[in-house]
């Protein structure tokens, strides 16, 4: 009697998804960054369940690497975070995507801010989270953010902003 054959390779759909994510990676460093973002994607839901938002943001606020800013690296971070979360739009995993991008942009010394906004008036989605670097949202067009009023902004060190307008 033979034991049933066990399929050891990952399912084709998962393989295809991983191949899609890895397409166009520009360097081994991008591959390593992608792997770490995927790991965060796996654990963030559990962390979100257990931690209040301010603690979660402080946890994600990585200390600066000390290597100075690198705009090419920042572009890779923005692109990979978008790929890992499947180009999520407002109200659909935007907080997790923003947290992951925020972490690696803080590490890359881009001084990101994590913003949470609520919609003016009625309509869906009711709220959105996004990351701002040098005054510009990294994943969203300015026009798409115009319907949201920023209510909370976390600095790159994880502290809640007090006083400055969260819009910029």
């Amino acid at each position: 009697m033979t034991a049933p054959r066990v399929r050891l390779e990952p399912p084709r759909t998962a393989t295809r998804a991983l191949r899609g994510l890895a397409t166009g990676l520009r360097s081994p460093a991008d591959g390593w960054l992608l792997a770490r973002m995927l790991a965060w994607r796996a654990v963030l839901p559990a962390l979100k369940r257990g931690l209040p938002l301010p603690r979660l943001v402080r946890l994600m606020a990585a200390p600066p690497s000390g290597r100075g800013r690198d705009h090419r690296r920042e572009a890779s971070i923005v692109d990979l975070a978008d790929r890992v979360y499947g180009h999520r739009r407002a109200g659909n995993g935007c907080l997790e995507r923003s947290l992951v991008a925020y972490r690696y942009l803080a590490r890359a010394e881009a001084d990101p801010a994590l913003v949470i906004g609520v919609r003016h008036g009625e309509g869906d989605p009711r709220a959105h989270a996004w990351v701002v670097v040098d005054g510009d949202a990294i994943h969203d067009a300015a026009a798409s953010l115009a319907v949201f009023a920023p209510v909370a902004m976390f600095r790159s060190d994880g502290t809640l902003e007090e006083g400055r307008d969260a819009r910029s």
Binding site: K48, P52, L53, L95, I116, V118, A129, A149, V151, A152
Partner: peptide, 22 residues
């Protein structure tokens, strides 16, 4: 909901007289 999602969920249903008062 997780505390983070709860915060966002509550905030979206909050009455707010004005957001201009920091």
């Amino acid at each position: 909901l997780s505390p983070a999602d709860a915060f966002v969920g509550l905030l979206t249903h909050a009455y707010c007289y004005t957001l201009d008062d920091a």
